[in-house]
Design a protein around this nucleic acid. Sequence first.
DNA 1: GGTCTAACATACTGGTTGGTATGTTTTCAT
DNA 2: ATGAAAACATACCAACCAGTATGTTAGACC
Lengths: 209, 209
Amino acid sequence: MLDLIHDKLCGCKRDPVKTREKLLLSAFEQIHEHGFQTVSLDAILRDTGVTKGALYHHFPNKNALGYAVVEEIISPTLSAFWIDPVLESDDPVVALQQLIRTAGETMTMEELKMGCPLNNLSQEMSAADEGFRKRLDEIYDKWRGGIRSALERGKKHNKVAGHVDETSTAAFLVASLEGCIGMAKNAQDMKILQQCGQGILDYLETLKP
Amino acid sequence: MLDLIHDKLCGCKRDPVKTREKLLLSAFEQIHEHGFQTVSLDAILRDTGVTKGALYHHFPNKNALGYAVVEEIISPTLSAFWIDPVLESDDPVVALQQLIRTAGETMTMEELKMGCPLNNLSQEMSAADEGFRKRLDEIYDKWRGGIRSALERGKKHNKVAGHVDETSTAAFLVASLEGCIGMAKNAQDMKILQQCGQGILDYLETLKP
DNA sequence: GGTCTAACATACTGGTTGGTATGTTTTCAT
DNA sequence: ATGAAAACATACCAACCAGTATGTTAGACC
């Protein structure tokens, strides 16, 4: 439907940018739901209506499609929601507590069952394919680095206690966040998510001066 | 080689218990290395020398083999190393700190790359198969319950601070432990493991009175 | 020692998958 | 207008995989 309207507005039958985007988005969703190795290209083609020839015109192989999902969807989404707000705040501890609270409140049961796209892919692919591992590790590195520098700035503004080791705390925070989401994903239980979330919130409290 | 010796000692050409054990052990290793869905039964048969007929005599299908690995290998191993020692100690905080330190010291690079078998399977299978999810969740539940009751006992012995909420702390501890191992697995970097480990150790310190 | 069944062994199948070969149709610069 | 290249479309393939059908053999029990 919308395609037809767009075709008329656009005045063209082909829109390679849109085709690529459709593929990326469908791939992201299906990878998120079923995992990269389990998802079949045919399923993505069925979902998007794109043909195999078109897919292999835009991506040389399945891995390349996955890489693009990591770089063009997962990475920017995570930055926007979890990294940038902390970097922009003067009080990273409070900012993180806020983020965790809103994440916990807005999380639906379906999202809970699917878990974190970044963590899912890491756990599935890091040992199997170096291309995935490096790209995912870059994201994690950026995340840890962001929290670390935010903690440093917070210390200067007297919002973070002096005894806090910024590097290990940042690593631990990212790890426990993913750990909590993973635990709730397996339990499929909001109560577990809230318990874990409370655990992080309490921990964050100990970082204040 | 050993099989032949055993055959002579045993005086029999067939040993169904041993055959089952061989299958379980090989399945565990290969699942740990490649994930459940990626591992092929043929690979396990090649590895063990067992034939397909024998495998399907012992297990009705692939999932059943996986379930048996969870119940008969992963669950008891985890209990022995991570749950029982904490339950037996009067000071769960110190006991956990000890466990984390020895785990961090004895971990090889190969183990680091492969991650935690329990967490790997959870992340891979919980959304895909309810049979796996329930079995893995039972293990997590036992783990959380163990730490919780250990924290309660520790409080009575004045080894755990009064402000500690046992339930959420237990959930958070298990989640962050798995989170740390997962983070180090993706990074393939001992330094990251140590940073995360230091984070947990510092956190555990805040639980003391 | 004969019989029955548990414990294996072999060969095969139907379905799926990532990838390719080859052809057609737009689009756009000249 | 036209040639070239980008953007798609179709048909096909070899490999693999879980599972099955069918047969064989060892060993326990009477």
